[in-house]
Design a protein around this nucleic acid. Structure first.
Lengths: 351, 351
DNA sequence: TTGAAAGCGATACCAG
DNA sequence: CTGGTATCGCTTTCAA
């Protein structure tokens, strides 16, 4: 590890290329932007100069001259799910900052679990008004096809939270949900102190992220914690009321529940039940997503751990990724990797 | 949550201000940059126009015109500590990307725990050659004073990993180490399955981060886990060999060690001991920082959990923060918050 | 104390 | 096919 020497050779510009290649600025620009109407020999000359000088275009200057605006669109489900609301708030927050950085954010909502609404919006987007779209929604063949059509029209597309792996989207922004489920299971197994049964509260069978978490959880439970048995499952549809109404029934039927894995949303109903019901005192509870509700539950000890993904990071990453895709520029993979966050009562971020 | 309407009123420019205020471009610029030689009445007129139009300066254009270069410096300890090496690698990686974004990164190293070397470098930095400095090093009054002098000379300063809270640095980039220690203790208490003693391996008494972790760990241990007793402490000086040589002695003297908290660096020695010594089979081990070494130990089950901070995030954040400070622009606090990461064998990032 | 005009690095229109 | 030149939004001499 040596101290860096500061070599400050001035960066070559288009003017330098023009001079070295013996052509005009306009021609350099044509070659640079692969515009037609330049003889092959001329192209060669210019490219040679570019290579020789090690030229790299100054994107800021180019965007200024071009009066470029990045027009991005976010499509989210219309729901009172706190995590989605957090994503939405981050979009709003970034909107403000980006206004002065040649970037406009548009927001569209679809009814939850409505693939056709997603398809309609995707199909309505044109390069005339939009450079990139980031979507969070159901995974169906029709959505996949609409994504592919948008891509073919030249629009950058990113999936958020729940992927659409069979599509040709530019990028997926979110966590590995199988690993997230496995992590939840590992924590569960190590936190629980006696043998018994585990209850799972899932969301919807249409959501790939929920299914993947479940698969990961089950796998680790089966392999590493034979003394624990995944006994019952509630399909909560992210609905606190529904969850709240189903829980008492399950607890009556299953006497030996020692852990609950809430793999989806709608934690409000679960928390209400846990804080009322005395028979569930010692149950280890692990849920997903850090929100106001889950944060409080974790602080109080109602929840024992939270598996989460940073909504701010997801939105900022989506913006960077879509911009890069629009400019056909590479991304920084490390910066765009969304972490599987583990929160305990002691490592909560300050409010 | 409503879909956004796309209002596209064109952003006002300096020309608009000049026109509305009835002055020239040059005068607008003088006011904008608080340069002298403008009558108060004129300043008023311009400011009024700015407010009326809601003008916000286009930083990219300004930087272009100004031929601005952000010249940033990183000062790190010269050590074979893997975490520091990771920071260093991130600096190198960002250097590449930033070369074409008007930003040069310089790197300086100091001998570990050598406040005077840090002071010398800080004192040698001038606004002629540097806009901002990010430092990671010992916390002493002399360093604090040097930081304050640099600040007063107009240089932006950020502390990384270990703070210098009594200084007037612009920003601290790192985690709350007390909370990190508390988190480690909580995991320890919940993972350990029988009463016993806990061994702590610390680093140096000169490092604020190590002390803070220790304090947080002890507090939670004492309050929440009375069946566990923090019994022994090894001061490892981040040195694997030293740690490796001390461990057998400690284990001979203390028969009931059920957990080890490695709060600093030098994990190599610890791992070697654990993988050889059979008496430590069931000991719960929690360490800091995700590195190649600790990652392997976690995968193998030698370590049970890791508390970490993202080195890539730290470096990127330092760059953004120093740039903003240099331009006297606000930062996005959420984006700059470094998380206390918890890693288990199941949520390791892909290689 | 103020203004006119020439850039910064790149793009784009209009001639030739 | 190729070149000249105005322009993007802002800064910075140089004169007045």
């Amino acid at each position: 590890m040596k101290d860096t020497t500061e070599l400050t050779r001035p960066k070559p510009t288009v003017n330098d290329i023009a001079r070295v290649a013996g052509v005009s600025l306009a021609t350099v620009d044509r070659v640079l932007n692969a515009r037609p109407g330049v003889r092959d020999v001329t192209i060669e000359k210019v490219n040679k100069a570019i290579a020789e000088l090690g030229f790299v275009r100054d994107t800021a200057a180019a965007n200024l001259a071009r009066r470029r605006q990045y027009r991005l669109m976010f499509i989210l489900p219309e729901t009172d799910n706190e995590f989605v609301i957090a994503l939405d708030a981050e979009i709003t927050a970034q909107s403000e900052r980006l206004l002065h950085q040649r970037t406009r954010l548009k927001r569209r909502t679809i009814p939850p679990f409505d693939p056709q609404a997603m398809v309609r919006i995707l199909d309505s987007v044109t390069t005339q008004d939009t450079d990139g779209v980031a979507i969070f929604g159901p995974e169906t063949p029709s959505v996949r096809d609409a994504v592919n059509r948008a891509k073919e029209r030249g629009i950058a597309v990113a999936t958020m939270v729940s992927d659409l792996p069979s599509s040709i989207r530019d990028h997926f922004i979110g966590i590995d949900n199988v690993a997230a489920g496995r992590t939840a299971a590992l924590l569960m197994g190590r936190f629980v102190r006696k043998a018994g049964r585990i209850l799972i509260v899932t969301g919807s069978r249409l959501a790939r992220d929920h299914l993947e978490r479940r698969a990961g959880f089950d796998a680790v439970m089966a392999n590493k914690f034979p003394n624990l048995e995944v006994a019952a499952t509630i399909e909560g549809r992210d609905d606190p009321e529904l969850i709240g109404s189903l829980l008492p029934v399950v607890f009556e039927k299953n006497s030996e529940i020692v852990g609950i894995y809430s793999s989806a949303a709608g934690n409000g109903g679960l928390i209400e039940f846990l804080e009322k019901d005395t028979s569930s005192r010692d149950v280890v509870v692990i849920a997903h997503e850090l929100t106001q509700t889950s944060r409080t539950a974790l602080s109080k000890g109602t929840f024992d751990a939270l598996i989460s993904q940073d909504s701010g990071h997801i939105i900022r990453s989506a913006i960077r990724v879509l911009k890069s895709a629009a400019d056909k520029l590479p991304i920084d993979p490390k910066q765009e990797r969304i972490r599987i966050d583990v929160y305990l009562s002691e490592n909560l971020p300050p409010l």
